[in-house]
């Protein structure tokens, strides 16, 4: 049985590799270089510059000394003469930024873990247990995916208040799964469907319970799907704003996006350096995570849409 499992795994990996290696030349040799320059490289270059410029600007501002920030005549604003780490050290040692960063990570990690556990169970039930009304439940979960936080935050604020969770990270840990579970369930349903049913039948005949099948057969084969769901959910949590803005009041409890918007905005003309440093430091963990898991990230995004 393990052999079959291994075979199935190689098949899945082979399919994934096939999907990745689409760099065949195709008909592109028919085009001349000047033509490719105008129709492909130039527009692509312009779009990439526009897409990346805000990050360049963010990074540049966070290491620029204050006088260069506001003096655009003597210094060329597109470059920095004597870079300084002042803004970043000020951010890390003189504000509560590390605390906010920790809050964000803690909430995102807890909410994501809870959601993945719930999603694995529900996706397995919908795909493999084929219970009465399972299809309807699948459709309902899909609709839950379409309910946006913007219409829920007011009633949720009063629900959170009623449960006594106001201004507590626990409120976010409990609420974020509503954003993550529908998405992860649909993603994992797609992965579970690719696992051969015969493997489970073998295990059932050998006397395994459903729980054993899920833990020992289905989950090891669905690891890429689990990583995708985890990465994407984590990013969604990190990005979430409106619930965090509504539920959290006291400064030390805030998450990075909320704190950046509320805590740094004073009348100070020199605020930009630390503001940009805050935005940069808040984005870096996600970008690094993304760099390691690009494939999983893209498959999560496109997988959820394809379903």
């Amino acid at each position: 049985m393990t052999e079959t499992a291994a075979q199935a795994k190689t098949a899945v990996q082979a399919a994934a590799a096939l999907a990745r290696s689409d760099d065949s030349e195709g008909m592109s040799y028919l085009e001349s270089l000047p033509r490719r320059l105008v129709t492909l490289y130039l527009p692509l270059f312009i779009i990439l510059v526009v897409l990346l410029f805000p990050f360049y600007w963010m990074a540049l501002t966070s290491i620029k000394p204050d006088e260069q920030l506001i003096d655009m005549q003597t210094y060329n604003p597109f470059w920095v003469v004597h870079p300084t780490l002042k803004h970043i050290t000020k951010l890390l040692f003189e504000t509560e930024y590390p605390r906010w960063l920790w809050n964000t990570m803690y909430v995102a990690a807890c909410a994501t873990t809870l959601s993945i556990i719930a999603s694995v169970l529900s996706a397995y039930a919908i795909v493999r247990l084929r219970f009465k009304g399972g299809d309807a439940v699948g459709v309902l979960i899909f609709f839950a995916y379409l309910v946006p936080p913007s219409i829920l935050f007011i009633p949720l604020a009063s629900v959170i208040q009623a449960y006594g969770l106001f201004d507590s990270p626990l409120s976010l840990i409990l609420v974020y799964p509503t954003l993550l579970i529908p998405f992860s369930t649909w993603l994992l349903m797609g992965y579970f469907k690719t696992i051969p049913y015969e493997l489970e039948e073998c295990a059932l005949i050998d006397g395994a319970s459903r729980w054993q099948i899920l833990v020992k057969i289905v989950l090891p084969l669905a690891v890429p799907g689990l990583i995708s769901a985890f990465i994407f959910s984590f990013t969604l949590c990190w990005n979430e704003f409106i619930y965090a803005l509504t539920f959290l009041q006291s400064t030390p409890n805030k998450t990075v996006p909320v704190a950046i918007v509320n805590e740094f905005v004073d009348g100070d003309i020199y605020k930009w350096g630390s503001l940009m440093a805050g935005a940069l430091v808040g984005s870096l963990p996600l970008v690094i995570l993304y760099a390691f898991f690009v494939e999983h990230y893209v498959s999560a995004m496109t997988g959820a849409v394809k379903e």
Binding site: A279, S283, V298
Partner: peptide, 14 residues
């Protein structure tokens, strides 16, 4: 895909 990864609020600040 990077603009999509970075939290909206943080790029909005930029």
């Amino acid at each position: 895909l990077i603009p999509f990864i970075v939290p909206t609020v943080l790029s909005a600040i930029a």
